[in-house]
Structures are given as C-alpha cells and as structure tokens.
Write a protein that binds this DNA or RNA. Structure first.
Lengths: 215, 215
DNA sequence: GTCTATAAATCGATAGAC
DNA sequence: GTCTATCGATTTATAGAC
C-alpha cells in the first residue's frame, strides 16, 4: 500500500479547503488561549484541546508556537488598521472622531481576545510585531495626526495635540476589551448589556466631542 | 559544629533586617520580570539573576512562584488605592478630577512595571486578586462615583455617567504605562521627556475638564 | 541564612505508523 | 492529512552540605 494513497483520493481543492478550515479553527482557539493565559502561559496542548485536534496537528499547520502566535497578532493588527476608514472620509471631527470611537468600541466588543493579545504583545515590548510598529503603525498614525491637525487649523475643533488625542481614543476604547473582566466584576459579575455598551459608547463620545470643542 | 551557629552569631534584629532587605530586592526584580515576560514567561531563574541571588534563596523567602507574584500584585494595588486622596478633599471637579489625572499620570511614569503587572493580571481574568476586585475595588469605586454624582447634582459639572468617567480616567492614565513601549516607538524610539510627559498630562486634563463642562 | 545539585513534572517539537 | 508515543530541554521546587 502506498502511504500517499490519500493524495490521490482527495483532490487538490479539497485539501486546500481542509487546510483553510483547520487553520481557522486553530487560529480561533489560539487567539482565545493566548488572550487568557498569555504567550508563556499558553500551551500547544491547551490550544489543541480548545480546537478539538491532536497536538501534533497544530505543528503540521504551524511549524512552531511562535509562528502560530505571530499569525494571531497579525490578524488583529489588520482589524485595527481598517477601523479608521471613517476618519478619512469624514467632513469634520464630529463625524470623523465620533465615528472612530463607535468603530473602535464595536471592535472591543466583537474581538475582546484579539485586543488582549495585542495589548499583551505591546506590554511585553512587542517582540514579534516591533517592525509593524515602526513602519505601518507609524505611517498610519502620522496620516491621522495630519487629518486632525488640518481640522484644528481650519477652526473645526479646539487646538488639541493630535498625538495625545489619538492615544486617548485608543486607551478608552480598548480599555473596554482589555479590562473587560474588571468592568464585568464591577457590573455585578455580569457582562455589559446592549444598553450598557450603548451608554459607554455615548459617554465616551460625549466627553471627547465636548472636550475637543465641537458640541 | 552546630549548623545553627549563625543564629547565635547574628541577632534577631539583624536577621529581620536582612530578611526585609532581601524581600525588597526580590520583589523589585520580580515586578520587572513579571511585567516584561508575563507570569508564564517569567522564571524564578530570571528573577534570581535580576536580584543577584541564587534561585533557591527566592524559595527561602517566598514559598512558591505564585506567592511571590501575589505579593507583587498586592503592592501595586495599594499604590492605586492611595492615588485618589485628591478626590475626597477637593471642593469640586476641577481640583478633584484634575488632581486625580495628575496623580495617576505620575504613577504611570514612576511605576510602569507595576501598572503592567496589574493590567496583565486583570486581562487574564484576575486569577489572583479577584477577591480584591469584588470587595476593596468595588467599595472604592462606589465611593468615588458618589462624589462625582454629587458634583453633577450640585451643577458643578455636566451630567456625565460617573462610572464610565472613572473608566475613561483609568484607561487614559494607565495607557501611558501599559502601552509605553508603543508610545516610545512612535516617539522615534525615545522615552517621553519631562516636557512631553507634561504635555501629555495637560492634554488629558484639558480634554477631560472641558469634556465634563468645567472649563 | 546561603548555595549546589537534583528530583519531579511539564512543554515544545518530532518520529513514524496509518 | 491524522494521530500516538516519545525525545530532549526547561522549569518549579526541594534536599542537604556549609
């Protein structure tokens, strides 16, 4: 019997589909385990159990634990980047910054694990995505700072330092994901309801938009 | 020869002093290593090297890695708690909340490792200090929310939800410690200067105080 | 109270049958 | 492409001499 028998029984397209589906299952499990246990605390066995696969299969799809982690971080980074489309198309700070806050709060609710993995990566000195910080993120930041500065120059908002305003927006919106456990505990042990998420988003928007002098 | 010979050569007070000094050195090293590597990534060997002691000595002063970690987290928690003395003695939100922002920003600069250990602990579900969240922090939060609500009722500030305002203050001030590496990278790889820390603090204060309608 | 040596457990990664 | 068994390295913790 040929040990490669399955190669001839399963089409190339089928194998590609199996690979894509397994990679997705593994990445979802890895994101959760890395978020809840940290990189050092996460084990391939834990991720394998969460994904419902034998541990060896993880090494078949991702050569090392670090390669798997790297892919998780990259996926999150992509989500962050596209959260600011509202920024570029907005006529002014009310729509631009208000919309950015709404988009980032929605991401915090939808991708809490990804946000935590990102926070953990940065807190530990960005050993894996340092090059991204120095290239992509730096350019992204410079572009948005320019937009904010233009609004200031046009008199559309109070003269606020664009850099620190961006940091404030990142901090407040990601806090609801990264410190979600603390917020949940202070909410009587219950996750925030739809109404409470709306309340949080509206409060952040109200304070910031008033704080930059546009309402 | 008596193996306890040193007991008779060293006084009880001297031994207490040695213990206190060694515990301090170990705790300082542990705070830094836990912050930079995470709980799972930190090893007793790394902490011992950082402290300049043999690994076995750590186990002499702290029975387990978890007990050492627990003490590090507790120390940080105490620092957080006393950061809000300005809150209680202030006549209004300008001094109270403005002073709180200044105090928290100063702590972020002075204790960046502690802030990161706390953030990491909360992000991973607070396995060690969950009871503190449910008791001390909950009471602390309720007390400050009452003060803010009183200011709102007295017309001293705009009607802003006290709970989410507190979360915003925590998020923005701690961001400068927890995401310090990212901020440093976006600052050309250099730590923030004295002037830049002042600028950051003033920007946060200006936006928040204007945002709650007191300036 | 200090330190070396080591026991006991765990983890990342791989070999090799299927 | 799947899975069991296991190797080799690392880690927490301790034993025991000094």
């Amino acid at each position: 019997m040929n040990p490669n028998a399955q190669v001839s029984r399963i089409s190339k397209g089928k194998r590609t589909e199996i690979r894509r589906e397994n990679e997705r299952v593994i990445l979802d499990a890895a994101e959760k385990v890395f978020a809840e246990a940290g990189y050092g605390g996460a084990t391939m066995q834990l991720i394998a159990d969460m994904a419902g696969l034998p541990k060896a299969n993880l090494h078949y799809y991702f050569p090392t634990k670090e390669a798997l982690y790297r892919q998780v971080v990259r996926n999150i980074f992509e989500i962050w980047l596209h959260a600011a489309d509202t920024f570029d198309e907005a006529p002014g700070p009310v729509e631009g910054i208000g919309g950015y806050i709404e988009a980032k709060m929605a991401i915090s609710r939808r991708h809490p694990f990804g946000s935590k993995v990102w926070a953990s990566e940065v807190m530990h000195g960005a050993p894996v995505i340092q090059d991204y910080l120095e290239t992509t993120l730096r350019e992204w930041t410079a572009g948005r700072m320019a937009v904010i500065q233009r609004w200031v120059d046009e008199g559309k908002m109070a003269p606020v330092d664009p850099r620190h305003l961006l940091y404030m927006l990142w901090a407040m919106t990601q806090h609801y994901a990264d410190f979600g456990h603390q917020i949940e505990t202070l909410n009587g042990g219950r996750p925030l309801s739809d109404a409470q998420w709306r309340e949080a988003t509206e409060t952040v928007k109200a304070v910031i938009l008033r704080g930059i002098g546009v309402v």
